[in-house]
């Protein structure tokens, strides 16, 4: 099963590498990974999409917690969550297909961010499954290039009200 795991990390040299090394060393699978700054400059947030049975996910969470640079690990899969991913999709067009492609972009609430005499680049945001759907629909036209940001996610509602208290979750 797919799991979305949010990790607060010390914004330090090598911290991201340590997570990546742990995943490859333990043979865990990563579908996407994204990392960036948070409201606190010395902390970054990493959003991981991974999959595995309960035993594996339990180990993923524990092993993440075990890293010295991780401050907090939350498996967001079972909690109400806002999830977004951004994709840039460059599609070939011919006479007659241009308006169809623009129409698909509209349906997925995408924006046209670039166009030339052969291709259109659409920007689509949304949960990863919406991106998957957009790509599926656009694929028959011929996708020239595709870039996906990986999912970012936050718990809905009361998240991050009191960051300091939450840091007590750290484990060995």
């Amino acid at each position: 099963m797919k799991h979305i795991i949010s990790v607060l990390l010390e914004n330090r040299y090598g911290a991201f590498n340590r997570v990546a090394t742990m995943f490859s060393g333990k043979g865990f699978n990563i579908q996407s990974i994204s990392i960036g700054e948070t409201e606190i400059p010395e902390v970054s947030r990493m959003t991981l999409v991974t999959s595995g049975d309960d035993k594996i996910i339990e180990q993923v969470v524990k092993q993440l917690n075990r890293l010295i640079d991780t401050i907090k690990v939350i498996d967001l899969t079972q909690t109400p969550t806002v999830i977004r991913e951004l994709a840039l999709i460059t599609v070939f067009y011919q006479k007659g297909t241009r308006s169809e492609i623009l129409n698909v972009g509209d349906i997925f609430r995408g924006n046209v961010v670039d166009i030339n005499n052969k291709t259109i680049t659409l920007e689509v945001t949304g949960p990863p499954d919406k991106i998957d759907a957009a790509i599926n629909v656009l694929a028959p036209y011929g996708i020239k290039e595709l870039a996906r940001s990986g999912a970012v996610a936050l718990k809905r509602g009361e998240q991050n009200k009191d960051f300091k208290k939450q840091t007590n979750y750290s484990q060995l």
Partner: peptide, 8 residues
């Protein structure tokens, strides 16, 4: 002081 390290 290590935010992410507090052994049980």
């Amino acid at each position: 002081e290590l935010k992410g390290y507090r052994p049980f």
